[in-house]
Design a protein around this nucleic acid. Structure first.
Length: 882
RNA sequence: GGGCGGUUAGCUCAGCGGUAGAGCACUUGCUCGACACGCAAGGGGUCACAAGUUCAAUCCUUGUACCGCCCACCA
């Protein structure tokens, strides 16, 4: 095969992806008796494109899916896209605007055609981009929230909830987006801190005895004022309750009422009540049914003043009207003062315009009732959040949940399955025929023009995608899905609602056993990425630059629980290097005839210690990786595999192998086999993290049968009998010797290329054996000329200590006595610090009395070792001077 | 106003009761026939601050200070 010196991700990625997809291995196997493992992909907006959040989310899901597939589960990763009502409609409307037309001009039917066209045109983008990440969901099962099947589920849910009185129509205040001309839910409103004005106005008493002062941030709503409220216990206004005042400009007579909502010590302590334009005021209105407070709507749907306003106001924009009210008050002499005021103003998260409380008829879901089982499921552990702290957020919101406004005055979405006759009677049914049947054949019906909140259909995702309401084998096998991976920003929008709907419609079974909340991907300064800040990183650019495997590995390595991810390119570069490292390890194997050499290899049968040790380390690393993935500690899994591949296999094992392979001695064949075998194990372990390079190497390093891919290989299972502590001890000793000699050489400026002699003094029998067994390795890795055992230290040599052994480097001609003296003193100093610490503990009566035996014994051994080592260094120092 | 999270090496972050870790960056050597996207050896931290619990605290408790999120109707 002959591997190139470096590899080019671009060439291999597309090739393998196409091959994987064609192989059919992404598909779940409902008819198999394998244990299912199911993940529902959070459906991205159909017209969206891939951002860093998707890249993270997709990578982690793919890691889990691949890992479980390799472990022999029947893995279903259910993909699909969301119709994203508001977002998509906005895009198409913007397109129409550029063409000089509008949705109104087109009409509903034509407009919807345009949206479907746009969906067809751009809808494939994001799923293509997910393929670039290497994602392996069951694409054959891809769903769209407005597919016929899913739409049927939506209608069925709507009708059933309606029949159960968990869904109803109501007239109340909603958050109204004047730009999009639709209601939006509480969650779609974001409060921004805005520097505004606080206007103080005077309302004269009806009896002409003076005036009361009120303050407001929204003067335009004065035109709909229905009362003035004060606190019931407020002494300064006590006598005024029941009196009437006149609203200037419109000269409406309204009462002064007492209500707890008012804060006596804020503003003047008196508040205007505008029941149809303020959520609090609406509550006040409901608490005072006898006060005769009117409900007056001032605005048209697009935020202009309507016919309920004085004529000279009609048609003005709401903010123009605000100015006019102020100037009219000023002209009338009723303007008290204007103060600067910082206030939280509600904005529509999509449109970015100020949202108005607006009195309309809308459809609501009784979320409070539906939340109860969903709360209980988390309390009892049927569903678990990872990290656990998100439970609190979930509980806090669910326990205080408000009715969910599900109707939107849009066209793109699921049209509400409710029909009206001419008298306004409503017929809720899954089809028009059924509604007609209910109403009677001769009744003319009109369907509710509104559509449902997008999240209504996404809430059904875990079961609607599996075929519900039909009882499909897939629904039966995969429904209680294993884990949901998502960002915390949609815990309320989506997770909570899936819980409510899932439990209600699936006999109380939770839609997922675990919800893994991953972090937000931020820029390297920790700021949220946004187009306006210009700090957006495009995952596809990063793939182009570093390769998909590097991007994936970075995502996994940085996905620590409970912290946001600050994305830095340095890190990406590091993991790109890791991929290259792996590539070159394979090249080494190739050059040394260590490929495809492990046919029939039994890791339990090896006899050469470095091989035993490597196998031990591989088994240990594999356990660590499994434990980390099973616990959703993705970063730990990444570190474990990285450390093993680079730190253990490349830095040590392959180096150990060099002299053995070169000499071609007895151990060579076993080393060759172990090297070859271990490389393939590494590729397998690393495959869920870096699928492309591992697949490529897998294909290149051996003659494979048709259809033999890592994608469908089995995750390794090792016997604990492969663990070998004795081999670990021996290899640690060897590594210590090598490191120690290298360290001394570097300290003493021994030229890197110079080969020197090593004299060993005081070695015990076992150690001597070690020097013999690993002579070749030591000679090469420590750059030695020879190793011999001595009784006396020759003049002018350098000494150091490993365990009970003194290592002597007779390099009198090279060394600098002062430097050596300094080195030894430094070593002694370090030991003294240690001894000091240990003595402090052992000298403490309380420690000796209370600490566990093992801890005390450990301290004592440590001290003995330190003293022994110190003695040898002291001696070395003495000998230096003689 | 509530709630949550963070504060550990220059940077990005792990660790969370028994001698402080990684990657990157930095310093010094190295063309040792896999790899300079590399190898080897180093330097660098009173683990934000204060008090408490403990034989022992970066880790547990309480409080303080910053930083960041989320939720909430002070007009």
């Amino acid at each position: 095969m002959a591997l190139d010196k470096t590899f080019d991700p671009k060439i291999i990625e597309e090739k393998h992806y196409q091959d994987w997809e064609k192989s059919g291995a992404f598909a779940c196997e409902p008819q198999s008796d394998k244990t299912p493992y199911t993940i529902m992909m959070p459906p991205p907006n159909v017209t969206g494109s891939l951002h860093m959040g998707h890249a993270l989310n997709t990578t982690l899901q793919d890691l889990l899916t691949r890992y479980h597939r390799m472990k022999g589960y029947d893995a279903l990763w259910q993909p699909g896209t969301d119709h994203a009502g508001i977002a998509t409609q906005m895009i198409v409307e913007r397109m129409l605007d550029k063409e000089g037309t509008s949705r109104k001009e087109l009409g509903r039917e034509k407009f919807l055609e345009r949206v479907w066209d746009w969906k067809e045109e751009s809808g494939g983008t994001i799923v293509k981009q997910m393929r670039a990440i290497g994602a392996t969901p069951d694409w054959e099962r891809e769903r769209f929230t407005m597919d016929e099947g899913l739409s049927r589920a939506v209608r069925k849910v709507f009708v059933q909830l309606y029949k159960e009185k968990l869904l109803y129509k109501d007239k109340r205040l909603v958050n109204w987006d004047t730009k999009l001309r639709t209601s939006i839910s509480d969650l779609e409103v974001e409060h921004r801190e805005i520097k505004g004005k606080f206007y103080h106005f005077r309302y004269p008493y009806e009896d002409g005895t003076g005036f009361i002062s009120i303050a407001t941030t929204r003067p335009e709503t004065i035109l709909a004022d229905g009362a003035v409220a004060v606190h019931p216990d407020d002494e300064k206004y006590k006598d005024l309750v029941g009196k009437n005042v006149i609203v200037p400009i419109i000269n409406r007579v309204i009462p002064i009422i007492a209500d707890e909502h008012v804060q006596a010590d804020f503003g003047s302590g008196a508040v205007k009540i505008t029941a149809a334009h303020d959520f609090n005021d609406f509550e006040v209105y409901k608490r005072h049914p006898d006060a005769g407070i009117p409900l007056i709507n001032l605005f048209t749907p697009d935020g202009k003043m309507n016919e309920n306003c004085p004529e000279d106001y009609q048609g003005l924009d709401r903010f123009e009207a605000r100015k006019k009210v102020v100037s009219d008050f000023e002209a009338l002499g009723f303007l008290d003062k204007i103060e600067d005021h910082v206030n939280k103003i509600p904005y529509g998260d999509r449109s970015g315009t100020v949202v108005e409380p607006y009195l309309t008829d809308q459809w609501y879901v009784d979320a409070q009732t539906m939340a109860k089982p969903a709360i209980e499921a988390v309390e009892t552990g049927k569903m678990e959040f990872v990290p656990k702290q998100w439970e609190n957020t979930y509980f806090a919101w669910m326990r205080d949940i408000q009715p969910w406004c599900i109707s939107r005055q849009l066209w793109w979405g699921h049209q509400i399955p409710a029909w009206y006759d001419d008298e306004g009677n409503v017929y809720v049914a899954e089809t028009e025929e059924e509604a007609q049947a209910e109403a009677g054949a001769d009744v003319k019906l009109t369907q509710d023009p509104d559509v449902l909140d997008t999240w209504f259909s996404s809430a059904l995702w875990p079961f609607s995608t599996l075929g519900w309401p039909d009882k499909t084998p897939e629904l039966d096998k995969y429904y209680q899905t294993d884990v949901l991976l998502t960002g915390f920003d949609i815990i309320f929008f989506w997770v909570a609602r899936m819980m409510m709907m899932g439990m209600h419609f699936m006999d109380g079974e939770v839609p997922f056993k675990t919800v893994y909340m991953h972090a937000l991907v931020r820029d390297e300064k920790g700021q949220k990425m946004s187009k306006s800040k210009g700090n957006v990183m495009d995952p596809l650019d990063l793939i182009e630059q570093y390769g998909t495997d590097a991007l994936r590995f970075t995502m996994v390595a940085m996905a620590a629980q409970g912290r946001d991810i600050k994305m830095s390119e340095d890190r990406l570069g590091g993991y790109r290097n890791f991929a290259t490292k792996l590539w070159n390890a394979a090249r080494y194997c190739e050059m040394n005839d260590c490929l495809d050499k492990h046919d029939g290899f039994d890791p339990a049968s090896v006899t050469y210690t470095p091989n035993k040790w490597l196998i031990h380390e591989l088994v240990t690393a594999t356990k660590e990786i499994e434990k980390a993935i099973d616990g959703y500690k993705f970063n730990e899994a990444a570190n474990a595999v990285y450390g093993f591949v680079w730190g253990t296999y490349c830095d040590w094992y392959l180096e150990f192998s060099k002299p053995v392979l070169q000499d071609g001695g007895d151990a060579a064949e076993e080393v060759r086999q172990t090297t070859s075998w271990a490389l393939e194990q590494i590729l397998t372990l690393l495959n869920p993290f870096m699928p492309f390079i591992t697949e490529e190497l897998y294909a290149s390093i051996a003659q494979r049968e048709e259809g033999d891919r890592l994608l469908t290989s089995a995750w390794p299972v090792y016997d604990d009998g492969l663990l070998d502590d004795d081999a670990v001890k021996k290899m640690q000793w060897l590594q210590n010797i090598i490191t120690e000699i290298r360290s001394v050489r570097a300290d003493m400026h021994v030229p890197a290329g110079a080969k020197i002699d090593l004299l060993v003094k005081g070695a015990c029998a076992e150690t001597k054996e070690g020097f013999t067994a690993f002579e070749d390795v030591l000679l090469r890795m420590a750059r030695l000329k020879s190793i011999s055992h001595v009784e006396e230290v020759p003049k002018g040599s350098i000494q150091t200590v490993v365990g009970e052994t003194t290592l002597i480097l007779p390099i009198a001609d090279i060394i600098d006595l002062d430097a050596e003296r300094a080195r030894l003193n430094k070593a002694i100093g370090k030991i003294d610090v240690d001894i000091g610490k240990i003595d402090a503990k052992l000298g403490n009566d309380k420690f000796v009395k209370n600490a566990p035996e093992a801890v005390i014994a450990e301290q004592k051994t440590r001290k003995e070792d330190a003293l022994m080592k110190r003695g040898k260094f002291e001696k070395a120092l003495e000998q230096l001077d003689c």
